[in-house]
Every structure is written in structure tokens, then in C-alpha cells.
């Protein structure tokens, strides 16, 4: 969502370029002193604790350039803690996974596989586990459940994802369903 540029983000009264007569300064390598030049801003909510602080993410050419507290947000009013202030490094981080990783049984390393391959293989495992363990009845009661599969996690997913996970697992018949709220 493009936002109108807020006052707080404006350059201050002085001109940045005029700050250093000598030219090369701390920001050598970043051609302009205006770090946010030409960025597109969007709002987000901090992924860490449950306060729900607002942030503004500035991106240029598909890359995150800056993350900062959203001053319009009524709860945090532009402030953040150390974690929220570090959100940038969640986006820009060499440790992020960018490929599907697969570890075969008894394997000692990850291998790369394609999404297509991964989804096909997982669907096969899920179907086999469901079909092998499915229970239709317990005594006279219809139970339609799949004890062979468990699902854990979800407290960091979006609501829409949580709902879909909840619906998906119930559709499979999963009752071993738990997440961070219980630990």
C-alpha cells in the first residue's frame, strides 16, 4: 500500500548534500545522502511480540532499504524495541532459505529439490499416512480421524494462514493439533 510520505520522513531543513564539503563521507558508496530516495513504502505489523506495533518498510528495486516504526500507529507511535528495530535483518539475511531443502532417510546432508517435487512427495506421504492409520469408528461412534499425522506451530502465521491450517488439518482428520499457545 503506497503511503503518503510523512513529515517525520522528510529531510530536515538543511540540505544533505551540503553537509560535507569534502565529499566522501560516512556514506561513501551510497551515492546520495538520501537513503530513502525512490523507495516505495508499505505498512506492516511487527512479527515479534503481541503488542502489534506498526512499522513502515521502504523498498527499492525489490529490496528492503529501511524499516522503522510507524508514527501514525496509535499503540507504538513510531517507537520500536530492539527486536522490532532489527526487522530489516529478517528480510536482508544470508541465512534465509531460498530453496526447498530435502533430507533423505539416514542422510547426512540437505539436498535441493524443486517445489513440484516436494509437493508431490509430501502429498504422497500424507496420503499414505492417512490411509494407513485412518479410524472411522470407535465403538458405535463415527470418529473419522487420522492419528498418523500431527501438526504443530502457527503462532507466527497470519490469521488467514492459521484458519487454512486449522481447516486443512481437520479435513485430513488430524487431532494431534497443537501450537505455541500451549507451551
Amino acid at each position: 500500500m503506497p503511503l503518503s510520505r510523512r513529515d517525520f520522513l522528510k529531510l530536515s531543513g538543511m540540505t544533505a548534500a551540503g553537509a560535507f564539503v569534502g565529499g566522501a563521507s560516512f556514506l561513501t558508496g551510497c551515492k546520495s545522502a538520501d537513503k530513502l530516495r525512490g523507495t516505495r513504502e508499505s505498512t506492516t505489523i511487527c512479527p515479534y511480540c503481541g503488542v502489534g506495533c506498526g512499522l513502515i518498510v521502504s523498498a527499492r528495486d525489490g529490496k528492503i532499504i529501511n524499516t522503522e516504526g510507524d508514527p501514525d500507529h496509535p499503540i507504538n507511535r513510531g517507537a520500536l524495541c530492539a527486536k522490532g528495530s532489527a526487522l530489516f535483518q529478517v528480510g536482508v539475511n544470508e541465512r534465509r532459505l531460498d530453496k526447498v531443502q530435502y533430507r533423505k532417510p539416514y542422510g547426512t546432508e540437505w539436498e535441493e529439490i524443486s517445489w513440484d517435487d516436494a509437493i508431490k512427495r509430501i502429498a504422497r506421504r500424507v496420503k499414505d499416512a492417512r490411509d494407513a492409520t485412518f479410524q472411522e469408528k470407535e465403538g458405535a461412534v463415527t470418529v473419522n480421524r487420522t492419528p498418523g499425522i500431527a501438526s504443530l506451530g502457527g503462532a507466527a502465521l497470519d490469521n488467514e494462514e492459521c484458519y487454512i491450517l486449522s481447516k486443512f488439518m481437520r479435513t485430513l482428520g488430524v487431532t494431534y493439533l497443537e501450537h505455541q499457545a500451549r507451551i
Binding site: V51, G91, L97, Q101, R121, E160
Partner: peptide
């Protein structure tokens, strides 16, 4: 057998969270 699927971070997708 382990499948590790690369997921999008909070600012790489659209949706809601409840505080």
C-alpha cells in the same frame, strides 16, 4: 525424511495478525 520448505516473512506477504 525431512522436507524444509522456505517460507515468506511477515513483510513478504499480505494478511492479518491479531495482537
Amino acid at each position: 525424511e525431512v522436507f524444509l520448505l522456505p517460507a515468506a516473512a511477515s513483510m513478504e506477504k499480505e494478511g492479518s495478525v491479531s495482537n
